[in-house]
Design a protein around this nucleic acid. Structure first.
Length: 833
RNA sequence: GGGCGAGUAGCCGAAUUGGUACAGGCGCAUGGCUUAGGACCAUGUCUCGCAAGAGGUGGGGGUUCGAGUCCCCCCUCGCCCACCA
């Protein structure tokens, strides 16, 4: 064994513990600041390979930045509230707090053992009252500014976890945590009004140099649609009493003349209010449909796309454009939570409406004629549909099933549309809105952020209710509003805090008889929406952070994390920052300058790791056998870290890195003793200079795979040299240090280096000098015909003359004169004949 | 169904702006050193060809002196969203 990694890694960590290498002085103005953030972990217990990938590789960059002279803030903490602790409590009878703190203790040790250079002096823990006091304080500020609302709405409910979920936490109709199909419930809950910020959340993306796919995913999630609100009045009943009106949202107001019925979501408010206090003629049938819908899970509602619905007998709407009386339906294909919860149905120009109309035998009226449609006539000619006569067109529609059965979705020329007939639908769209008495609006797909959770292990919502049930923010002098401990955790569908006697007594004592507490806790995503602000001033008991430090350290330079947070945490954190910016609490309105989503480590079989597939890699095995350093550098080498790709774990990968490290150790041992310090030959200066630039540049791009490759090339080059000066070896070790911090420390000592290798500067003594001569590829007509070595400053004419002396070139030219020469200095010379 | 991204050797992957396609590694092969080695060292490793050379980045077309890179069509895979009016 060339080196004993257990001994080396242990000794290195002991050495660092005595040196306090990574406590960042936030007020040091002498160096350029760099705030490098990596998503803080949930204390689940053990570090799996994903944790290693997240923390070890980002750590490499933190170390590189320090070596390059930056004042680096690289903090860590724990996102410590959450369901697993509570589930463990229910299952094993352990206190969630104990469970969480025990896990954190274990994970701290593991994080240290991977050689991560976190600044532990600034650690935050979201379940600690000193932290959640400020989560609560910020919530009260948001509440006071009207951006937190307590209101009744249809919400997603997970029957297994017995709690509501945010829209973002529902995936394919199932609970993001446990996979149980979610249900819809009508509940009064707390919402943060993220929809008020939808426009700015989209606009803000423009200013960020993020990967386009991340921005696009956020834009799609926010889902901006421009359209109109139109009012369909209901026809008064036989006694002349008004029945009100139905407001719809549409992106296609140009099709208003084709609206032949109106559809309400089964949860629509009108159905609860009733129609002038009168029962519908088929009230029973309608009620049964509403009830059946409410029983369905979201998944059931989506899976069966066969259209269902019921006509509201006795209610008639009036199309505001045609003034026609049209029927009103309820159907579950219309969602209560989008737009106004009602649509005008235009079966001729919308697929869903078309399907529904066919099933219920409703009139389908075309109001748009497509333009520039290329069709094939019976005799095989290709012509535009515009060139057909009306008769031919009708004939085509009658005989072509696709024309007859499919709605026309594109805009075109209006037909059957009163005074708008013959006009271009896109051009007169907004005039038609005016004509129909509607107004232009923008609708967003994103829903307000539901933050109430009927669970125990979370931040208590800092709200109390007065005798009338009106919510009030808990004044700051009573914060932190402590999570009670006399609580029954068992999920019953009611918030566990409701079982706390202490909490009720606390409220009575402070606010008076008749006042009641809020029993729900906050979604843990609220805790993590501002944690990066707290690192700057993690102990402050008087403020959530430090204004001066926020000014000098924000925005965060680079944020590294997982792509699963693109439309959750990342969106929430941006929203929070914008709100706090508006409240003049933070100095920036975008928190993260750069964002990098790392990829996924797959099992050796190329499949996603899972216990059931038996392809789970346990990092500890590899750490024990080959050392933390070998695992670190393998993870750096496995693939580019700047794109969310997925990389299969190569079972020989860590071993091969270990071999590389052993070769380095032998190289250092061989030359450290025999070669005294002497001048570094030009050739080696160039080797070091090239590696230094390449490793650092690729590190900046989060392409550690090619950084490692550059180090391998350097080692390969040095291995074949008979003598290697100590200076060169020291530079090599300094460049290795971010990747293999323990071994580098050991080798640094072997080389007689002073202090710690992690205090050394990145090699910058040598610069890559421009070569005097360079190899240029010679092409004839774009085909490679040879290579010549030319002075870098040679003229095109001289280069051409030189190239033509090559036999292969003169053969290829065949005696002809080139009529064009393309010369890219230092790269290529192309003779075109 | 919609959106986004990606397809380069047996495998992971290199190739800043269009400029020598396959760097680095894994695996494999041959040889050396060894009692032995799953250790170490050396050499080789896209295809055809003795060679000169020719072909080659999912398939087909195009732009260009020159295309992995840009444009159009198609195929496959991955991720996200999914009755959003």
């Amino acid at each position: 064994m060339a080196y004993d990694h257990r001994d080396i890694e242990k000794k290195a960590r002991e050495k660092w513990a005595g040196l306090d290498l990574y406590s960042t002085d936030l007020r040091d103005e002498s160096k350029e600041k760099y705030y490098l953030l990596t998503e803080f972990p949930y204390p689940s217990g053990d570090l799996h390979i994903g944790h290693w990938y997240a923390f070890a590789v980002t750590d490499i960059y933190a170390r590189m930045l320090r070596a390059c002279g930056k004042n680096v803030l690289y903090p860590i903490g724990f996102d410590a509230f959450g369901l697993p602790a509570e589930n463990a409590a229910i299952k094993n009878g352990i206190d969630p707090k104990e469970w969480t703190y025990a896990n954190m203790a274990r994970m701290r040790e593991q994080l240290v053992s991977m050689g991560a250079s976190f600044d532990w002096s600034k650690e935050i823990v979201t379940c600690d009252p000193s932290y959640y006091q400020w989560t609560q304080w910020l919530f009260t500020k948001i509440f006071e500014h009207g951006l937190a609302e307590h209101r009744e709405a249809s919400v997603k409910w997970c029957p297994k976890d017995q709690t509501v979920l945010a829209n973002e936490q529902v995936q394919e109709g199932c609970c993001e945590r446990c996979g149980t199909p979610v249900e819809e419930k009508r509940l009064t809950q707390w919402f943060l009004k993220i929809t008020d910020y939808a426009k700015r959340l989209i606009a803000g993306l423009e200013t960020l140099p993020w990967r386009e796919e991340i921005k696009e995913a956020q834009r799609a999630w926010i889902g901006e649609s421009e359209g109109a609100k139109l009012r369909f009045d209901l026809k008064p009943d036989s006694q002349g009493r008004t029945l009100g009106s139905i407001e719809v949202f549409t992106t296609r107001p140009d099709t208003i003349f084709g609206a032949t019925y109106v559809v309400l979501a089964p949860e629509h408010a009108l159905l609860r209010q009733g129609f002038a206090g009168q029962a519908l003629k088929n009230q029973k049938e309608v009620d049964a449909y509403i009830k059946a819908t409410s029983k369905k899970t979201e998944r059931e509602r989506n899976e069966n796309k066969e259209k269902t619905g019921v006509k509201l007998e006795g209610v008639t709407a009036i199309n505001p454009a045609t003034k026609e009386e049209i029927p009103v339906y309820i159907a579950d294909y219309v969602l209560a939570s989008y737009g106004t919860g009602a649509v005008m149905a235009v079966p001729a120009h919308d697929e869903r409406d078309h399907e529904f109309a066919k099933k219920f035998g409703l009139p389908i009226r075309s109001v748009i004629k497509p333009t520039n449609w290329i069709v094939y006539t019976a005799d095989g000619r290709r012509i535009s549909i515009d060139e057909l006569s009306e008769e031919e067109r009708q004939n085509l529609f009658a005989h072509s099933p696709s024309f007859a059965s499919a709605p026309i979705l594109n805009p075109g020329i209006l037909i059957n549309s009163g005074e708008f007939t013959g006009k271009n639908s896109e051009e007169v769209k907004w005039d038609m809105v005016k004509y129909a008495g509607g107004e232009k609006t923008t609708q967003y797909r994103i829903r307000d952020w539901l933050v109430s959770r009927q669970r125990y292990w979370g931040c208590p919502i800092p709200i109390v209710y007065d005798r009338e049930g009106k919510p009030h923010a808990i004044p700051s002098e009573h914060l932190p509003w402590l999570l009670p401990t006399d609580v029954d955790f068992k999920p019953t569908g009611k918030a566990p805090l409701a079982s706390s006697k202490e909490l009720k007594e606390r409220v009575t004592k402070i606010f008076g008889e008749g006042w009641t507490p809020e029993y729900d806790t906050l979604d843990t995503f609220v805790d993590s929406s501002w944690y990066f602000l707290r690192y700057l001033d993690h102990k402050d008991a008087h403020d959530f952070s430090d204004a001066a430090l926020m000014k000098s350290w924000l925005p965060i330079n680079r944020y590294s994390g997982g792509s699963e947070h693109t439309t959750m945490h990342l969106l929430y954190a941006r929203f929070f920052t914008k709100v706090l910016y508006d409240l003049a609490l933070v100095p920036v309105d975008e928190p993260f300058m750069e964002r990098f989503n790392r990829g996924l480590i797959l099992g050796p079989d190329g499949q996603k790791m899972s216990k059931s597939k038996g392809n789970v890699i346990n990092p500890d095995e590899f750490v024990q056998k080959y050392g933390a350093d070998a695992v670190r550098i393998y993870l750096a080498f496995i693939g580019p870290y700047n794109e969310p790709g997925s990389y299969p774990w190569n079972l020989d990968g860590v071993a091969s890195m270990r071999k590389f490290l052993e070769r380095i150790t032998r190289l250092v041992e061989k030359h450290a003793v025999v070669s005294p310090v002497h001048t570094v030959p030009e050739r080696m200066q160039q080797m070091i200079a090239r590696a230094s630039v390449k490793v650092a540049q690729d590190g900046d791009r989060f392409k550690f795979n090619t950084s490692v490759s550059a180090l391998m090339i350097l080692v390969n080059e040095l291995e074949v040299s008979t003598t290697v000066p100590k200076t060169v070896l020291q530079y090599l070790v300094i460049m290795l240090a971010p990747f293999v911090p323990h071994l580098a420390e050991h080798l640094w000592e072997k080389l007689g280096g002073e202090g710690s290798v992690h205090k050394q500067s990145w090699p910058a003594e040598y610069v890559v000098t421009a070569a005097q001569e360079v190899e240029v590829v010679v092409q004839v007509n774009g085909k490679r015909r040879g290579v010549i070595t030319l002075a870098t400053n040679i003229s095109e004419a001289d280069a051409t003359t030189a190239a033509r002396t090559l036999p292969t070139v003169s053969v290829a030219l065949g005696g002809k004169e080139p009529n064009r020469v393309v010369y890219v200095a230092g790269k290529i010379l192309n003779l075109v004949v």
